[in-house]
Amino acid sequence: MQEHKIVAPILEFLLKSVVLILIALTGFAYTTLLERRFIARLQARIGPNRAGPQGLLQPVADGLKLIVKESITPALADKFVYFLAPAIAVVPALIVFAVIPFGSGPLFSLMGDLNIGVLYVLAVLSVGVYGAVLAGWASNNKYASLGGLRASAQMISYELAFGLSLVAVVLMASSASLNDIVKYQQPGNILGWLIFRQPIAAGIFAICAMAELARAPFDLVEAEQELTAGFLTEYGGMKFALFYMSEYVKMIAMSALFATFFLGGWSGPFVNEFPVLSLVYFAVKVLIGLLIIVWVRATLPRFRYDKLMAFGWKALLPLSLANVMLTALLIVLGVY
């Protein structure tokens, strides 16, 4: 009896983790395809359509290619850190999914109801920046070190506004649990979504999420025109694939977080009658988020480094601070 009480929860966690990681990795593979096909459409191109029907096997082909690539380590690289950096980048991206509620009911979220979910998200996401910094430093390459420096400066400055936008959400829901935040947004009533009640926070969150992801238009970390590939310059084969994976898994995670915080998470009509629908709603919201991320990339040119930093510190940070104060004031006054 005693044994079961210990073994069963561990097994449950293990199984859930494996399923979750598999989903995240498949999601990663097909997000790359989705992005390439969708951006090709936006740019009046066709995109990869040769491997399998509609290019559906393209991610497999890419993966195989990267796996069989020769693994090269630069002669003067700090070998230990050089190998460690991709792992540091990819692990936080994967484990952030642990607290995201994918559907109604405890079954659909790995850690159930973690009461400091928001803190967990912020903590885990901020570890990711070490991957970029260490990669840039360990490669012992000028482009890589500049890319790593840019990465650290960019992610740190946007993390502040990112966190503050979530403070407003936590104030509204008066809970830091992601499940509570979803429930607070009144499943079934679209006006309850926080994107309508906290539009400023939602906007700041979206911009900062892009900057955290270091994706276009904030992709100066790997601006190929200036820094070849930034901190990725010296990486190849599976080590490169891990960085790539971390970027796309994070993209899914950010999209999922946005859906959770601002789009009512898994809520939608008939969720109580058919709990499975909640999964579908959530998936659709995440997909829309991903498409918007790709759309933005196709629309905007890259920011310049100094403008990016100025924007983060001089515009987003004061705005998010003001938003937190305004929200707090409105709550005290009883408007919300």
Binding site: L42, Q43, A44, R45, A216, P217, D219, A223, Q225, A298, T299, L300, P301, R302
Partner: peptide, 13 residues
């Protein structure tokens, strides 16, 4: 020139 600015859509168009 658009590509150098990271504006690939203009480049493609």
């Amino acid at each position: 020139a658009a590509h150098e600015a990271g504006f690939d859509t203009l480049f493609m168009f």
